[in-house]
């Protein structure tokens, strides 16, 4: 998918330039795009390093487990098909907690493990269960407390207040999670 989108951007750009006679601008545009990505990277690197440093401390201190205990009571009723003490429940909760903290690298293996545990509860192994769909929708719409990369990009672009979108993003992501939950619970009866 991304292969064709990428190629489309380049080829359609060159085609439009040929039709409009703006090929000189495109030539400059290619170079500017490539070199601006390195400037962007330098601005981003500091904030990414800061954040992964802080998050390493959180991980080492067991914050994922602590947060899991806090959000577990909210999540158990959302997964009626999963027995409360089944390992699947634990993995689902832990994946969502890691996502909330923005620990993408740690979250993915836990999430795949959660999927494998959910698969053990699945009577028809090639068909997704309600619990799997609910889990994935929560995962893709889930709340991230601090969107560190976005803050980094804003700082790199010279924002006067890079973190001013933390509150708005938190509210927007909450709304998106609730909408997703409503959709997944409504649609599971139709499919």
């Amino acid at each position: 998918m991304i292969n064709s989108v990428w190629l489309f951007l380049i080829i359609s750009g060159i085609a439009v330039a040929a039709a409009r006679g703006s090929m000189g601008d495109v030539s400059a545009g290619i170079m500017a795009g490539a070199s601006s990505s390195v400037e962007l990277f330098l601005g981003l690197m500091g904030i990414m390093a800061l954040w992964t440093g802080v998050m390493r401390v959180a991980e080492r201190a067991g914050l994922v487990e602590t947060l899991s205990r806090v959000i577990r009571p909210v999540l158990v009723p959302i997964f009626p098909g999963v027995p409360k003490n089944h390992p699947a429940m634990g993995a689902v909760v832990m994946n969502l907690a890691a996502n909330m903290l923005g620990l993408g690298n740690a979250a993915t293996p836990i999430g795949i493990n959660a999927m494998k545990e959910l698969q053990k509860l699945n009577p028809r192994p090639s068909r997704a269960t309600n619990a799997m769909c609910t889990f994935l929708v929560l995962n893709t719409s889930s709340v991230q407390v601090i969107p560190a990369t976005v803050i980094g990009l804003r700082a790199a672009a010279g924002s006067s207040n890079p973190t001013e979108i933390v509150g708005t993003a938190l509210l927007a992501t909450t709304i998106s999670t609730l909408a997703g939950l409503l959709a997944v619970k409504t649609l599971e009866r139709l499919y």
Binding site: T108, G111, I112, M115, K116, L118, Q119, P125, S126, R127, A128, M132, C133, L136, V137, N139, T140, S141, A172, T173, I175, S176, T177, L178, A179, G180, L182, A183, V184, L187, E188, L190, Y191
Partner: peptide
């Protein structure tokens, strides 16, 4: 990635529901 890891082929309502969440966001 997630469904691929366990060999799920029929993904049912997950894509429409995820798109609803995306659009709401």
């Amino acid at each position: 990635v997630y469904f691929g890891a366990v060999g799920i082929k029929d993904t049912r309502h997950v894509l429409p529901a995820a798109l609803v969440a995306d659009l709401a966001g």
